[in-house]
Nucleic acid binder design. Structure first.
Length: 827
RNA sequence: GCGAGGGUGGCGGAAUUGGCAGACGCGCUGGACUUAGGAUCCAGUGCCGCAAGGCAUGAGAGUUCAAAUCUCUCCCCUCGCACCA
């Protein structure tokens, strides 16, 4: 144990001390006015959970704080804020579980989490703290909704929607993962309900193409691209002749217009509006039964790829516009109502799904693309659909065209006759924006008998969420707000007649879709943000958070930003210039017997509080980074932290002993200079590359070099110690600040300047090269840097080990790479 | 099924314009100091072997003076998407 307080590293003591000083001096307050260039370093803000932060959450926050402090030392005016995503299901479900009103529960959780965040010692500017469930904030969330409404980007529609029976609310498509609720994994069912929707599909093209200008992980960009799911093809109009002889136009979407001559039947989705109009008397019962059964099935059941396809004939026929042939019209649930036009032309020869269906129901298969790649049986019949390129056959005047060219020609032919056109389709669907829950922003719409749907005037915002006793979800398809007459009954803002409020609330993702615009001007009273201010700070220079938000949050935030840009409120249309996803922290779970992401349900969470108590913040910070590459998942080990604790003790010890034996710059050993410049170079380079784990090991290497009795006796100059401390300060800010003070510095280390390095000092005068014989290392040799080939070769041949290896054999060749290697090829 | 990423000591992980594989840390072994050591310091630590030496980056082939790194074939793991016409 340490003997005296003066010389001992007592992390808790200095951490408490410096946090107090930093607070008193306003060290972390980002000035409004500054001559320095701006840097916006943003964490994905947390929702206030009841279980608090675990070491996995810490990782992202430490990462961003190290980065923010580094940027500050580089001379940037850094904005590094924090807040609370406190509306929505996670917060509300926690409240219901604990039987505490969400408002109180959220307050408590925030208090606890804020205390934990404080323990990280991050340079958050708490004056800018925001909270999405406070009326001062959600007033502006509602305001944005109204702007969208006025643009026709928010609309109400009755439709079958995803319903989570456990959470008793509707979910967005993005919130349904493998047919289950993203939050509670309950199987999602369907319900027909009127819903508020946001027309995100209007931005599909820009959300897709603007990905190209973002410095984001390719993986995330790819996920968004796939989610938006652009595909180019054609809309083709088929004439439908119902069983009773009426005709209807039917649009189908296809990406393979070149296979039009091979369409041997047409399929409508069960939900398709024409189904009931075209069905024949004889088919009525079977079609109605089929449609009903399909609608009862969950999305999960319907989209099982492995499931055998089913369908029924409607009695109607469709006329192929290109050759007039009549083909049967079927209803089948392998066709999705919400994609394309909800109807397809089926080409079994060139689409595997159609092929399987045609086989089952004995529908004809007509090949129209010829290729020797197709898989056939002995008789020449297709064994599976051929989906590749080829030459058009059985296609009238298009015969002989390559399929790629045929795609265009066929559509042009149809277009001339008003029978079709080129079409782009997206998988992306409009965003279901209503939730039948209490804890969210009330949707600011009023229903008047005379005026209909009326947005709440901006001056009347916010529509306050009423305080109620009963906030549990009702399960009726209406939010608990519907049971509160004082809330529901109101006056029409237009004509003052009695009116009723919308009682649905917004989803969890509403507040987080624009919070980054609020931090630069968090206290603004008369607007969500000030254009000049946000234009100055945004886009966010570095956004750090988990990859789990790759689609939901990041897509929504981009959408909101683009809408506000189009409305002229912003002069940038992408919110996050650079994105970094930190890997998850995993730990072995006793419950599952596997290495799992930390979660309460898996019983493998590690609470940072006792670690901070035992080792101090700086140790936990450094260990979080040392554990592995930041972008990869890593395994938490309780033992490993000891090594980092030792490292910080050694750093402490080295600085204090170096301080006792300071020498002038000229008197410092040249090797020391080389090592500290090398450390500067490495730490800078590794920070820039987000290789924080190896940045830390370079400090350890330096200490292994510097912390020996001889080196300390020989002495270090003050500049060397200063360099070391500044380099270390983003990682271990409290320790660095304390040692900065102990080495007689008056002002904070974070007002210092990040050191440069001298390239000419990085390399030594002599280098060790490897000596190989036939590609195997047999010895090493010290040579002067840049020593000539002939000289080196002479030395190599003189080595005993080399002589032994050559023996009776002859050197037939040698390879010389200056300052690295000599390889002798002997035979 | 499609797409992306990844397989390196007992463990976490270093090293890719091809150039000494295993930096750094954990753990382990031995030693010093000690009443004591779960503190600290010193030494050692990929595997086999007394040694010389041999073998080693998921498996197998190839290119090369030289391969964790490049090429091909295959296996395994993780993540994302999954009837999107």
């Amino acid at each position: 144990m340490p003997r005296s307080d003066e010389s001992a590293y007592l992390p808790r003591k200095i951490e408490v001390k410096w946090r107090k000083i930093w607070e008193e001096t306003g060290a972390h307050i980002t000035p409004e006015q500054s001559s320095r260039p701006k840097y916006y370093c943003l964490d994905m803000f947390p929702y206030p959970s009841g279980s608090g932060l675990h070491v996995g959450h810490w990782r992202g926050y430490v990462l961003s704080d190290v980065w923010a402090r580094y940027k500050k030392l580089q001379g940037f005016n850094v904005l590094h804020p924090m807040g609370w995503d406190s509306f929505g299901l996670p917060a509300e479900n926690d409240a219901i579980k604990k039987q505490i009103h969400p408002e109180i529960c959220v307050r408590r959780n925030i208090d606890n989490m804020k205390r934990q965040l404080m323990e990280i010692g991050a340079m958050y500017d708490w004056n800018r703290e925001i909270n999405t469930s406070s009326p001062e904030y959600y007033r502006w969330t509602q305001w944005i909704f109204i702007q969208m409404y006025n643009q026709g980007l928010a609309y109400r529609k009755e439709m079958p929607v995803n319903w989570c029976p456990k959470d008793k609310t509707v979910l967005a498509n993005e919130e349904v993962i493998d047919g289950r609720c993203e939050r509670c994994q309950t199987k999602v069912t369907k319900r027909q309900l009127p819903q508020w929707m946001l027309r995100i599909t209007a931005y599909a093209e820009r959300l897709l193409s603007d990905l190209d200008k973002l410095d984001w992980p390719e993986k995330v960009k790819l996920m968004q691209r796939n989610w938006i799911g652009r595909s180019e093809g054609a809309t083709i109009i088929f004439n439908l002749i119902s069983a009773s002889g009426e005709t209807h136009n039917l649009q189908v979407f296809t990406t393979r217009p070149d296979t039009l001559f091979g369409a041997t039947y047409v399929v409508l989705a069960p939900e398709h509006p024409l189904v009931k109009n075209i069905t024949g008397v004889g088919q009525r019962k079977s079609v109605e039964d089929y449609v009903r059964e399909s609608l009862e099935k969950s999305e999960l059941e319907r989209t099982q790829v492995t499931r055998e396809k089913t369908g029924v004939f409607t009695g109607a026929m469709a006329v192929n516009p290109v050759n007039g042939s009549r083909v049967p019209v079927w209803v089948a649930d392998y066709v999705l109502a919400h994609y394309g036009s909800g109807a397809i032309m089926a080409v079994p020869a060139h689409d595997q799904r159609d092929f399987e269906f045609a086989r089952k129901y004995e529908l004809p298969v007509v090949e129209v693309i010829s290729s020797n790649q197709a898989v056939r049986d002995a008789n020449g019949y297709l064994l599976q659909a051929y989906e590749g390129e080829g030459v058009m056959i059985n296609s009238g005047c298009f015969d002989g065209l390559p399929s790629e060219k045929g795609k265009r020609k066929v559509v042009e032919w149809l277009k001339e006759r008003n029978l079709g056109d080129f079409t782009v389709t997206y998988k992306l669907r409009d965003w279901i924006f209503s939730r039948q829950r209490y804890w969210g922003e009330p949707i600011p719409i009023v229903y008047c008998e005379k005026c209909g749907e009326v947005p709440v005037p901006e001056k009347n915002l916010p529509v306050l969420l009423p305080r109620v006793e009963k906030y549990q979800p009702s399960g009726t398809g209406q939010s608990p707000l519907a049971t509160i007459p004082e809330f529901v009954n109101t006056q029409c803002p237009g004509c003052a007649s009695p009116a009723k409020r919308e009682t649905d609330t917004m989803p969890q993702w509403a507040g987080s879709s624009w919070y980054f615009l609020r931090y630069p001007n968090p206290h603004l009273k008369d607007a969500p943000f000030d254009r000049q201010t946000v234009d100055k700070w945004l886009p966010v220079d570095c956004y750090i958070g988990g990859v789990e938000h790759a689609i939901l949050h990041l897509l929504y935030a981009r959408f909101f930003t683009k809408v506000l840009y189009d409305l002229g409120y912003l002069s940038f249309d992408e919110p996050f210039a650079r994105l970094f996803n930190q890997g998850m922290v995993c730990k072995y779970s006793e419950k599952t017997g596997k290495l799992e992401k930390m979660s309460k349900s898996k019983g493998n969470v590690v609470n940072p509080d006792p670690l901070v108590e035992q080792y101090g913040t700086d140790t936990v910070r450094v260990y979080e980074l040392f554990i592995g590459p930041p972008e990869l998942d890593s395994e938490w080990s309780d033992q490993g932290i000891e090594g980092v604790y030792r490292f910080l003790h050694r750093a402490w010890k080295w600085v204090l002993s170096a301080k006792e034996h300071l020498v002038s710059g000229e008197k410092e050993d040249q090797e020391v200079k080389r090592q500290i410049h090398r450390l500067t170079f490495r730490v800078t380079e590794r920070l820039e590359g987000f290789k924080f784990n190896t940045a830390i090991s370079s400090f350890m290497e330096f200490l292994n070099f510097a912390l020996t009795a001889e080196r300390i006796k020989a002495g270090f100059c003050l500049e060397t110690v200063e360099r070391f401390l500044i380099l270390l300060s983003p990682f271990a800010p409290h320790l660095a600040e304390e040692l900065w003070e102990k080495t007689n510095h008056q002002s904070s280390i974070f007002t210092a300047k990040w050191p440069d390095y001298d390239r000419s000092l990085l390399e030594a005068e002599t280098v060790e090269i490897a000596v190989q014989v036939n590609g195997k290392v047999r010895d090493t040799l010290m040579i002067n840097k840049g020593e000539k080939e002939s000289l080196v070769l002479e030395k190599v041949l003189a080595l005993e080990s080399v002589k032994r290896q050559i023996g009776e054999k002859k050197v037939v060749k040698h390879v010389f790479i200056p300052d690295r290697i000599v390889n002798l090829v002997v035979k």
